[in-house]
Design a protein around this nucleic acid. Sequence first.
DNA 1: CAGCATCCACGTGGATACTG
DNA 2: CAGTATCCACGTGGATGCTG
Lengths: 122, 122
Amino acid sequence: MKKEIENKYTEPAHCPVRNVLDRIGDKWSMLVLLLLEEKGLLRFNEIDKQIESISQKMLSVTLKGLEADGLVKRTIYPQVPPKVEYELTELGQSLIPHLNTLVEWAKDNMKTIETSRLQYES
Amino acid sequence: MKKEIENKYTEPAHCPVRNVLDRIGDKWSMLVLLLLEEKGLLRFNEIDKQIESISQKMLSVTLKGLEADGLVKRTIYPQVPPKVEYELTELGQSLIPHLNTLVEWAKDNMKTIETSRLQYES
DNA sequence: CAGCATCCACGTGGATACTG
DNA sequence: CAGTATCCACGTGGATGCTG
């Protein structure tokens, strides 16, 4: 730690940037949120199939995090074999539009960025 | 890798979600972009002071990445001691509004999320 | 001043096997 | 079916010291 006292923009607990990065900055959360938005209600294995390259462990960890933050609602049906369904909460829904504008921006500028990066390397 | 063939939403090179996460999902990029938007033109050490907890190494790495992607412009003044200034490019500017809506969302919902997480832990 | 080089600690996330 | 448990590889990023 360079300094003991951090300012409002770097102190994790009160920094909105950290706050948002902690939620969507990991490898899978954003993808899961967008998938749940698109498909509505999904079971664990359905998500697993849609996001092909995710492992069971990371899907489990990701869903737990999103559930803990109140972005995703988890419903367990007490039956054998178990059935669990996931869906966005209102809070989760409210985040989606902002994620979508980001994705749109990415789509629009992917080529420009790739070109820039290639030039930079050379 | 669970499967050899990944779909369009997980294959890194063509997935817009990965694309955007790779740019702003790291620890410092988003913070640096927002700072440059707020302050305009800044020297290396000025950024270093504003973001108190960043190390010189990470600031250097972050700025290089942003420069490579064409989001930040770097201007060197050939003098001793050296002077280097950083500013957002047009592309960088175009990303800012979307980051700001995210930050606004985070501000509006921080408390709700924190409450949810505390309840989940118990 | 604006970095780079080196070393290293830690956390994320992947592979695999197992279970109620 | 919907996870958990364990182990481990890797990358991110921090600390420190050095330099043109």
